[in-house]
Amino acid sequence: MSLILDHIDKSFESVQALKQVNFEVKEGELFGLIGPDGAGKSTLFRIMASLLIPDSGRCSMLGYDVDKEYRQVRQIIGYMPGRFSLYMDLSVEENLAFYARVFGTTIQENYDLIKDIYEQIAPFKKRLAGRLSGGMKQKLALSCALIHRPRILILDEPTTGVDAVSRREFWDMLKKIQREGITTVVSTPYMDEAELCDRVALIQKGSLLAVADPSALAEGGEKLLYSLRSGKGVYAYLDQIRQLEGCRYAWLFGDELHVTLRSAADDAGVKKVLDSWQDDSLKWESIVPSIEDRFMGLLQEESDADSEMEEGE
């Protein structure tokens, strides 16, 4: 195992940021941590990067304890923080050379590893990092995190605030890095990126909801998933749908509503009600669930469980 997180707990004053987070990442894997803003992703990543000490639990990288053997850990990991943290007043080239020298290496020595990425920003190598565009900043940050040829790469929301084309390119680069044998852990708030990972962990409010490979996760989810579209917009129907007898959960999904039913038999009942709303543009159909549907389903179950617990108290 490359990375082992063993029942990590972390609290900030009154807020519990991480609750018993427990998973492992295999050697050479591209592992995704998916969750909304504030779920605890960055806290977890800072623990992995030896920047935070968990209240309890252990984190180890290739057998090194992140807390006790942080000096060894820092040699073998490459970390890219969520916020751009390179020197804005140094040029692209100077930043890269600086990090190379700090790790006791040179740009030339590991150039093959960053070649594909660095070549895209090389035309601007004399430009100050502060004057780069968002996508170029990400590429530079990735180059700097890779320059000492780490064995584990930790990327905290690398694609947040980056345009769609750059995001796509970025994931292609991650795939290439993976082929170099580098284990990569990446966090993202975007569901569609989950499918690009070998395995993903879903996190919400500091707790893991599931750890699985993306296709299995989607399949393991809601069987009775339906989509509702309307030319008039579906938002107005959300409350009405939720009040239907057969409706288990319903949520907005882009410009449509996704609805799960309690049983297949409820389908007919729902259709009848829909007809009675006399909206010709309404379209109701059974769909194959995506990973995002699975995530939404898990979230709904989680909040149901929470409210039951609160009622029980």
Partner: peptide, 11 residues
């Protein structure tokens, strides 16, 4: 500037 975040994971 938050640059220490990156510096801290270096040796």
């Amino acid at each position: 500037m938050g640059t220490t975040e990156q510096i801290n994971v270096t040796p």
